[in-house]
Write a protein that binds this DNA or RNA. Structure first.
Length: 303
DNA sequence: ACCCAGGGTGACG
DNA sequence: CGTCACCATGGG
């Protein structure tokens, strides 16, 4: 991996196993928006990272982030998790016959390191919801209470501060589609605005940090694990949603419905990067619409 | 019309 | 500890 800041852009070369398009659209982060590609670009997106509006694109041999000042590179290196050896993680997956099936389609998936407050609110919104609608609600929340920014001719909005969300009314949140989650969002924003330190959970043992997050209204086991994995560096947090539930039943339990505690135990067996591996499983499960019959039954049984 | 989506809460055993 | 109705909303 070779990083350099050139003409106001961060250019990352010799970066193996990174698929920006997959990472930006797989549902781990909700603020990535596709934008027009320039010649030679495989994909291009805008996003707000660490409070900075950026345009990120990928070519055959490089990841490019614009703008990026000399002293900002570290922010994006951290966000994109560039210093982690995903080759090693993909080897772990390839070496487990139960997991290997996930790899062909999910190569290049990474776990980005989002802002904890943004993850907290975003994943409260994610409950019993779908990725497209979650993205829409988050976007409207940013337009409602976030700071206007600009990157490469695109107008973007920062994720609102805890204070800005805490100042909203429950009605405003329902008007942007938050539904019954509106009071949960308010409660959490108010608590952070009052000084609760999410960053402290980063250096806490997984279970202790998890227990802390469960004290927020609207945060249950799955949402807590998402916040831990996607924003607080807990690579062994293993969120179990409907897709992971189906995938684990099929890959690990012979399609005999297992309890979540049993799935957690199987996840523990994957090691300290089980959460990152979870992201490959999740991507695979969605890509093949696991558990759903496209047209006719093709289960091989009598028919 | 019904079912689903990166589920959680509160009530009740 | 487990189960279960209910919760807003939009798309298939």
């Amino acid at each position: 991996m070779i990083c350099e800041v050139k003409q106001g852009s961060l250019v990352v070369r010799e970066l193996s196993r990174f698929d920006l398009a997959k990472c930006a659209t797989c549902g781990q982060a909700f603020r990535w928006a596709e934008c027009e590609r320039k010649p030679g670009e495989l994909c291009a997106f805008t996003c707000v990272i660490r409070g900075r509006a950026v345009r990120a694109s990928q070519t055959e041999d490089a990841l490019i982030v614009y703008p990026c000042a000399e002293d900002e590179a570290h922010k994006y290196i951290d966000y994109f998790d560039l210093e982690r050896d995903y080759g090693m993680i993909e080897q772990l997956i390839a070496a487990d016959p139960r997991l290997a099936v996930c790899l062909p389609g999910a190569e290049g998936i990474r776990v980005f390191n989002q802002e904890p407050f943004e993850a907290l609110i975003s994943f409260i919104i994610s409950a019993n919801n779908n990725i497209k609608r979650i993205s829409g609600i988050v976007e409207r929340l940013c337009r409602l209470a976030g700071k206007a920014l600009e990157a490469g001719g695109h107008e973007l909005y920062a994720f609102p501060s805890p204070q800005a969300i805490a100042a909203l009314s429950e009605r405003q949140l329902k008007e942007i589609g938050a539904g019954y989650r509106a009071p949960y969002i308010l409660h959490s924003a108010q608590r952070i605005a009052e000084g609760y330190d999410l960053e402290a959970l980063r250096d806490m043992p997984l279970e202790a940090a998890r227990k802390e997050l469960l004290s927020f209204k609207g945060v249950g086991p799955k949402v807590a694990d998402c916040i831990l994995l996607f924003s607080l560096g807990h690579t062994d947090a293993f969120p179990i949603d409907v897709w992971i539930d189906r995938a684990m039943n099929e890959l690990f339990f012979g399609s005999v419905p297992a309890k979540k505690s049993e799935m957690k135990q199987a996840a523990a067996g994957m090691g300290r990067y089980s959460g990152i591996i979870q992201q490959y499983i999740f991507y695979h499960a969605r890509a093949v619409q696991l558990g759903k019959a496209p047209h006719a039954a093709q289960d091989g049984s009598a028919g």
